[in-house]
Write a protein that binds this DNA or RNA. Structure first.
Lengths: 174, 174
DNA sequence: TGGTACATGTAAGGGGTTACATGATTAA
DNA sequence: TTAATCATGTAACCCCTTACATGTACCA
């Protein structure tokens, strides 16, 4: 149930409406925890019911601006420290498991495209890194840099692995 | 919708009952695509309805042994080649984004534990690698090796990153 | 004969995605 | 005045998890 904690985290020090939050989800968290509008509004209602957030102000067009309560902040901290990460599913790895049903040519092509994709993703992240304004300090930018570096390292690893795996397949076919 | 393709993949060249499949999910695919008994039986019924698998034999205790049909194999191959990987969610990265709400000590502790966890996961995978019998060739073992290597590289990267991130935080706090 | 392994299924509830539905405010 | 932006909400459908429910075959 991490959507709830993503919402809480985005409200730390920055009160926002559901509409505002959607923008933050679509920019800062796009590569980390995507969420849809329908999900966010539902979760906001639930969090308010449970006292983890408050409606601090109402504006035009029915705008409701939410703030984090003490209870909400405590829950966010608890989650950060206590909760164990859930088991991960990887459709990419699942494909690798079954790559044997393809012809050697198709398999080689698949791995080549995987390597290209990883390289492209890495380039896109690097561009994002260059485009962001790192001059003004703040929690999101500092921690965003850590997350961004994780992404860069992940894509680099994926690219190297795909090349290695392609080599393994060709040597096995010989 | 990858569960469907996991089931199809596990049935390639190896007819099985739902019970058999559960064993394969809990061993070969445990770290790649976990599935529950209730999911597997439901999916088998749906796949049979859609003609992607057939009941090839019935045994004691109501056992139904399924085989892949030509349509099923074709669908598996199509998925391998055509389908794009879905956007990934990472609760680990989400935590990193919000690590600023912890005290510096708590944050350092969190990253230290993340590094330890990655090291432990890597060690567990290496043990699995050593314990498996690689002598008998077969698609699953060959491709399983590729997937295993991916896991080893991923955990290594996570460990290195956690150490680096811890360094970033301490230098920022100074 | 009694326990373990084999074997299949259903139900309830949570979370996610897509699509639908509606309306107010602002700026050109 | 009209188009873009702001703003919230609901409904249907799919996937996943947990728990419940039932019964058969085999082996010691």
């Amino acid at each position: 149930m991490s959507l709830r904690h993503a919402v809480l985290g985005l409200l730390v020090d920055q009160p926002a409406s559901g509409y505002d939050l959607m923008k933050r989800f679509n920019t800062s968290l796009a590569n980390v925890w995507p969420a849809t509008q329908s999900q966010v509004y539902g979760e906001l209602a639930r969090l308010a019911d449970n006292g983890l957030i408050d409606v601090a102000a109402e504006g035009p067009r029915g705008r409701k601006e939410y703030t984090l309560t003490d209870t909400g902040l405590a829950e966010l901290q608890r989650w950060l420290i206590e909760d164990k990460p859930e088991p991960r599913r990887s459709s990419a790895l699942l494909r690798v498991f079954f790559i044997g049903v393809l012809t050697p040519e198709q398999a080689a092509d698949y791995l080549a495209r995987a390597a290209e994709q990883a390289a492209a993703d890495q380039a896109a992240l690097r561009q994002l890194q260059d485009s962001l304004d790192w001059t003004e300090p703040g929690q999101l930018t500092v921690n965003g840099r850590l997350a961004l570096e994780y992404g860069l390292r992940l894509y680099a690893m994926q690219e190297e692995w795909a090349h290695w795996a392609a080599g393994q397949l060709t040597s096995a076919t010989d």
